[in-house]
C-alpha cells in the first residue's frame, strides 16, 4: 500500500514567540478530500500556506508523496531544500486563494496559460487548448477574453480554479474559497469544487467555513484550534457526534450564526 500523499511530521510554524502550528502531525491520503475547520487564528490556513511553501516552517518535516518538501536528501544526509527541489515538488500542488489573486492585467484565458507556458514548457497552442477546456468545465467559455475587473467574484474564483488546474496538479488547496464572495455567488464556486472532489483525481485540502459543504464533500474533517489539530474524523462523526468540548463550542457558535 502506498503511503499518504501529504504528511506533516512534528511541524512547527512560529512568528517569533507566537506558535501558529505546534508539533503538528497530520496526513492526507491520495485522492482523499479533507476539510479543515476551526476558528480564525487556529492555524488552519497556515497548513495550506506552509504546504504551498508560501511560508517556511521552523521545525519538523512536510512530505509530499514520499519526498520531503522542506529538506532534501544529499548523499545520506538531509539538507535544507534548494530552490529547484522546492519548485519541483511545488509543481504538484495547486492553490486557490480566498481573494482569487487573478492577474489583473491578463484576460481569463491569459491567466490560465501564463504558468503552463512559462514553467511546464507547453506551447502556447497546447496550453490554450487545455485552458479552454478548463474554462468550459467551470462554465466560463464566453468570458475567456474578459479581464478580472469585468468578472463577478464568483466568476473570478472559477477562473482561479481553472488557472490552478491548468498546472495539472495532483494536490489542490482551497483556502476559504467562498469567504470573499457575495452569498448568491457561493453556490457556483462550490459546484465546481464539488465536481473536482467527486472526480477522484485530486487530493484535496479545503479550508472552509461552509460547514454543510464540508460535511457533504469531504472524506474526513479536521478541527483545528490554537495551532493544534484537536479532533478529526468522518464528517458525520465530527458534525453529528463531536467529542471535544472546543469543537462542540465551535459548532454551536457556527449554528447560532446561521
Amino acid at each position: 500500500m502506498k503511503g499518504p500523499k501529504i504528511r506533516f511530521e512534528k511541524v512547527l510554524k512560529a512568528y517569533g514567540e507566537l506558535k501558529v502550528l505546534e508539533d503538528l502531525d497530520f496526513h492526507v491520503d491520495e485522492n482523499e478530500v479533507v476539510a479543515i475547520i476551526g476558528p480564525s487564528g487556529s492555524g488552519k490556513t497556515t497548513v495550506l500556506r506552509v504546504l504551498m511553501t508560501l511560508e517556511g516552517i521552523q521545525g519538523g518535516t512536510i512530505f509530499v508523496g514520499d519526498e520531503p518538501l522542506n529538506v532534501m536528501r544529499k548523499g545520506d544526509r538531509l539538507v535544507p531544500a534548494n530552490r529547484a527541489h522546492v519548485r519541483r515538488i511545488r509543481s504538484k500542488i495547486g492553490m486557490v486563494f480566498q481573494s482569487f489573486n487573478l492577474f489583473p492585467h491578463m484576460t481569463a484565458l491569459e491567466n490560465c496559460i501564463e504558468a503552463p507556458v512559462q514553467t511546464k514548457g507547453l506551447s502556447k497552442s497546447e496550453a490554450t487548448a487545455e485552458s479552454l477546456e478548463l474554462l468550459a468545465m467551470v462554465g466560463l467559455t464566453d468570458k475567456r477574453d474578459h479581464y478580472p475587473s469585468q468578472l463577478s467574484g464568483g466568476q473570478q474564483q472559477r477562473v482561479a480554479i481553472a488557472r490552478a488546474l491548468a498546472m495539472r496538479p495532483e494536490i489542490l488547496l482551497f483556502d476559504e474559497p467562498t469567504s470573499a464572495l457575495d452569498p448568491e455567488m457561493v453556490g457556483e464556486v462550490l459546484n465546481v469544487i464539488r465536481d473536482l472532489a467527486r472526480s477522484g483525481h485530486y487530493t484535496i485540502l479545503l479550508v472552509t467555513h461552509q460547514m454543510g459543504f464540508a460535511r457533504e464533500v469531504s472524506d474526513r474533517v479536521c478541527f483545528f484550534d490554537g495551532g493544534v489539530m484537536v479532533e478529526e474524523g468522518a464528517p458525520d462523526d465530527i458534525f453529528g457526534n463531536p467529542q471535544n468540548d472546543r469543537l462542540r463550542h465551535f459548532l454551536s457558535k457556527i449554528l447560532e450564526a446561521t
Partner: peptide, 27 residues
C-alpha cells in the same frame, strides 16, 4: 502590487525572473 499577486505567482511556480517580468513590473 498586492501581496496576493506574489503568492499567486509562487503557487503557479513562476520563477523570480518571470514573476517580476510578467506579473509584478506590468502592474
Amino acid at each position: 502590487v498586492p501581496r496576493g499577486q506574489w503568492e499567486a505567482a509562487m503557487a503557479l511556480n513562476l520563477s523570480t525572473y518571470r514573476t517580476f517580468r510578467r506579473i509584478i513590473i506590468p502592474q
